[in-house]
C-alpha cells in the first residue's frame, strides 16, 4: 500500500503556478480558434480522496446538465486522467463561434466537445509536462456522458485509486455563455514522483 502523501503549501503553490502557465497556453489556442478572449481563473490544486471528487468540481452546480470527455495520460512514472466537462448551455455559442450552421444535435455536440477537448487537454498536458520535464502519452478520448447531471458524472468518473491530486481549471469566455471545467487527476501512485519533480523545480 502506498502511504498517504502530503504536499507542503510550497509544493501546492508551485504546482498551481505550473498549471497556471499550462492553462494559459491552452487558453491561447482556444482563443485563436474561436476568436474570443478566454477568462483565466486561478487554478485550484487540491490533494483529495477520490470520494471527495465533487469538491474538485467547485465551479459546477449539481443541478447543471453537463457533457464530459476523459482522456488518460501516462509517462515518466506519472499517470492520470484529464476530464473536460462542458455545461450543456455552452454548445449553441460554441457552434455559433465555429460558424456551424444547421441543427445542433447530440452528434454535433459530441464533435464540438471532442474538438475542444483535443485542444485544451493536449495543450495543458504539454504545458505541464514541459515544465516538469516529463513526457506524457495520451490515450484515446472517451465520452463520459452527454446531458447528465454532475452527481452522475462523478459516479462514472470514479476511479480505483483512493487519493488523487486534482487540478481544476474553469474556463469561461468573455461575453459568451460558455463555461467548461478542465480537470487533471493524478493517480495515487504518481504522487511521490510528482512531488519529486516539483521539489526539483523549486530548488
Amino acid at each position: 500500500m502506498t502511504q498517504a502523501i502530503k504536499f507542503s503549501e510550497d509544493s501546492r503553490d508551485c504546482l498551481q503556478e505550473v498549471s497556471n502557465v499550462a492553462m494559459g497556453r491552452a487558453a491561447d489556442l482556444l482563443a485563436r480558434l474561436l476568436d474570443v478572449y478566454v477568462i483565466l481563473p486561478i487554478p485550484n490544486v487540491n490533494l483529495l480522496e477520490i470520494s471527495e471528487l465533487h469538491m474538485a468540481l467547485s465551479s459546477l452546480e449539481d443541478s447543471e446538465s453537463v457533457s464530459a470527455v476523459c482522456q488518460g495520460f501516462i509517462g515518466s512514472n506519472i499517470a492520470g486522467e484529464a476530464l473536460l466537462i462542458f455545461n450543456d448551455t455552452s454548445f449553441s455559442d460554441i457552434a455559433e463561434l465555429t460558424h456551424f450552421k444547421g441543427v445542433i444535435d447530440k452528434n454535433i455536440e459530441l464533435e464540438l466537445l471532442m474538438d475542444i477537448a483535443n485542444i485544451l487537454i493536449g495543450a495543458c498536458l504539454q504545458g505541464v509536462s514541459e515544465q516538469l520535464d516529463v513526457k506524457f502519452s495520451q490515450g484515446q478520448p472517451v465520452i463520459l456522458g452527454q446531458h447528465i447531471k454532475v452527481p452522475e458524472l462523478i459516479k462514472s468518473a470514479k476511479k480505483r485509486w483512493k487519493q488523487t491530486l486534482a487540478i481544476e481549471i474553469n474556463y469561461t469566455i468573455e461575453n459568451r455563455n460558455i463555461n467548461c471545467d478542465l480537470l487533471l487527476l493524478f493517480t495515487e501512485d504518481s504522487l511521490s514522483v510528482l512531488k519529486d519533480k516539483i521539489d526539483y523545480l523549486m530548488e
Partner: peptide, 9 residues
C-alpha cells in the same frame, strides 16, 4: 509577466 499569452491580453 503572465501565463495568459492570448493576443488580447
Amino acid at each position: 509577466v503572465s501565463g495568459d499569452i492570448q493576443p488580447e491580453a
